[in-house]
Design a protein around this nucleic acid. Sequence first.
DNA 1: CGTCGCATTGATATCGCTCAAATCCGGTGG
DNA 2: CCACCGGATTTGAGCGATATCAATGCGACG
Lengths: 208, 208
Amino acid sequence: MTDALPAPLPPFLPEALRREASAVALQRGGKLFHCGERVSHIHFVVAGELLAVRYLRDGSEAVMQRARGGEFFAQSAMLVPHYSCDARAACASEIVRLPVEALRDTLAADGRFALAFAGQMAADLRRQCTRVERLRIKRARDRVRHYLVCEGPLAADARLQDWAHELGLEPETLYRALAELETGGEIVREGRAVRLAANPPAAPSCAG
Amino acid sequence: MTDALPAPLPPFLPEALRREASAVALQRGGKLFHCGERVSHIHFVVAGELLAVRYLRDGSEAVMQRARGGEFFAQSAMLVPHYSCDARAACASEIVRLPVEALRDTLAADGRFALAFAGQMAADLRRQCTRVERLRIKRARDRVRHYLVCEGPLAADARLQDWAHELGLEPETLYRALAELETGGEIVREGRAVRLAANPPAAPSCAG
DNA sequence: CGTCGCATTGATATCGCTCAAATCCGGTGG
DNA sequence: CCACCGGATTTGAGCGATATCAATGCGACG
């Protein structure tokens, strides 16, 4: 406990906050906090995946948030005194937690940190906004296009499985969509990498 | 120009920032900024709807962000010197813009404001995270359930059309899903209001 | 060499989207 | 007060797309 773990934490965290940080390890299915508990910490996911879930009366559950390595989790707990959902690890995970009091104090006192923290949240927010717009798209091909336009080419070391999950598609559907886009000349695949074709078949934008 | 518009702006904005604010009105289709332009302002949507779009080479477009009345827009511009997309009004809109320099300075100088601003972004981020998880759900019925669990009952004065759009469904699909859920006893409809049934048909969670 | 996970392709079922028509509801004007 | 109108809601029928199940190829790794 109470290890200082400078490496995995965001670089903009002031030393004063790092000293207050403590590490938590969770098994798959382990709980980080429960609905109704008093908010004491803000969490940063070093590795693994955390879920914020709310349970339905019939035993099923609704995932409200999902955070993976390098992301903050349940940031909105900053604003409220009690958690309104449960936090569970989707797989074995390592978390660093910061006392919410210390975070608030540091935000209020350290302008440079406040700016960086707001910046991190702005970046996360932009990513989620883009995902929302992408998931609103119905056709698999159009989601793939949207991703390539907004996020750039897919790295060669990425697994298509994970990409399918990011796109809200089943892997088989993604494979088929990629095959069609490649046949249509809209994308180019080099090994596992995928990028938009430089010269798409449809009407070009400006030059004739 | 340079109107101070205290009413529509978030209450936590310091007076110093309000004095720097200027109002902008846009027709449907009007551009707020273009890809490549230098970032000068952060925008707050008073009324209407703004889109951040990136154009594909074939003339179609990808929406990256969407902001409606009461929301900030293109917050991530805080972090970068140039816009990487175009901003267009989806309908006639009123915007208040804050010079990014002034915003940065105020964030760094005014701790209370920095905390509130970060809080606003945390709340927006939570909302988007929940939407992402909801849109990942494939079946219409399950999306409706997720919404009611995470966001609470639907107000009686809401239009089902707007709700369908929020859920990423066509109105007809939502009507059918609601009919099925009501027949199944999972939800109760009182006029236009919709809420989860107090006593669902499936197995209860704790008490027998 | 065997195994395992990932990628790929085929066949089928399911679900949501689209087009179309009927009903309901609120507001407007006579 | 009533007739009318427009938009929202609801229901029906058919189509298209994705999910699902199944089988095969492929590459890494022990």
